[in-house]
Structures are given as C-alpha cells and as structure tokens.
Amino acid sequence: MKGLMVYRVNVGSCNGCDIEVLSALASRFELADMGVGVASEPGEANALLVVGAVNAKTAEHLKQVYQKIKPPRMVVAVGACAFSSGAFSGSYSVANPTDELIPVNAYVPGCPPSPHAIADALAGAVRAKPRGWRAPEDFRGVPEVDAEECTGCGACAQVCPAGAIEVLDEGGKRKVRFEYAKCISCAFCEEACPEDAVKLAVRYPLAVKSKGEAVDEAELALAKCASCGTPFVPPGQLTSAAKRIMEGVPEYVESRYAIERSMMLCLNCRSRLESIKGAKGLLLDLSGAVQAR
C-alpha cells in the first residue's frame, strides 16, 4: 500500500497503547517521511489501528468505524488487549477480541508495544524499510523458553497474571506454551521458573500476521509410570526434584534409589495399597536417617 492514513480507535484501553501510538509521531520515528499520516476521522483513513480490549459497549462501535475506513482497509491490532483481550481476558465486561469482530491484517504484541515496534509495523505496511530498532539491555520483551532446561513444572503458568501460559499433556508429550498474544511482559514467569529456563527476549517484538506465529513452546516427552506404563511426568522434573531433596537433606542420599523409584509412580499407582505401605516404610527409614544425625 502506498501512503497510509491512520485512524486510531480505542475500544477499551488503559491508554498505554494510545500514548505509544502518539509517541510514534515523534520525529525520530520518521513516520511522516515514510508517507504515514494521521486521520482525524475514520472516513479519511485507509488504515485502522485498534487499541484496547473490546468491551460490551464498544463492540458495535468498532464494527461501524471499520465500515467507514476506506478500502482496501488495513487493520492493525496494537497491543495485547487488541490482540487477545490481554490482561483483561476473563473479565465480565470484555467482549470478543478484535479479530472476532473485524478482519485484522497484522498484530503488534506488547503491553504496550513500544513506538519502535508500532513504527516498524507501519513501515512494513507501506513497504518502507523497517528501522530494526534495538531494545536496551534490560528490556522486557516476550518470554522465550529453553526446552533443554524446562522441566514442565508449570510454575510459570501458575503465576502468569495474564493467563498467557498453557501446560498441555497430550500424546505422551507435555507442552508448555507461551502465547505472545496475551503476554504483558511482566517477567513474572522468568522470576518464578526454578530452572532458569525462561528469559524475556531483549528485542522489540515484531508484528505478526496470525496468532499462530506469536507463540513459543517447549515440548517435553513424558516419562512412563514404572508400574502401569502411563506417561505422566517429564523426567527432568523428577531429576530436579530428587536433586533438591538431596541438597536439602544430605542424609537422604543413602536412600536415593528408593526415593527416585517411588517418584516414578503415577498418581493412580501411588494410591494403591502396596504403594502406600511402601511409602510409609520409606518415610520411616528416612526419618530414622535424619534422627541418626
């Protein structure tokens, strides 16, 4: 598209994204030079920037505004809220995300995305060369998970305030999936991960064309239950737990084999009578080891 006239519509934002869209007008981002202008009415625009989480009151407005944009309409969903309702998904007043109401051409992840990312997304739309801005050293970008280190424990999913992390067990595998559509880059997952397997990328996230492009995931094979053979837990989690136990109580090292073997039972097998008896015996042995100290 040559020459872009952009209209911004706020469908329920914290105004963080609005401010960054405004900030993108600063001279350093050179939007005017690239042929990107700001329209004050939807009818004057050929591009629509949607910011915020669509709520019950703005859903209809969004559709009307979209109709007024000059075809071929270019729609960019800016920020986690417009992408997926972001931090507000699950709220009673939040309606469908943008792309369930109008067609969306590009999404810019982030909460909010930096004007650098917004400007680059618009540059892409007018086929100008994106500037490829570099983020500062401690920038909080989107999380990247190291599948070698991740044990699939799900601590990150527990703490994530935006519900951006999913832990799924299927087909003998566990997937830990980070959805950038929802991520607000709070870095809570990075803090919570006991294996240091999650790091927030030090770069401005690029615009994407679909939700599918905006994920990172660790896929881990599940270890089988020693008794019934059902896949139930990623082996890394057992190794890591055993290591922590041995470090915490050095006296247990002698019983290492028995401890590890009892951990290899799935939930079902663990609640069988023999297993409970075995566990009781193991516990008695272990308390004996500590008392002998």
Binding site: N10, G12, S13, C14, N15, G52, A53, N55, A56, K57, T58, H61, A87, F88, G90, S91, Y92, S93, V94, V159, C160, P161, A162, I184, C186, F188
Partner: peptide, 20 residues
Amino acid sequence: YTHRGIENLLSTKTYRQGVF
C-alpha cells in the same frame, strides 16, 4: 467506553498478580 471490570478482576487474581 473503556470499562474493563477491573475491580472484579482483581478479586480473582493473587495479590502479587494484582500489581500488574
């Protein structure tokens, strides 16, 4: 027009999540 049900949402999040 920008109502997002925040007070209600806050009573579904842990204290630490609520900060964000």
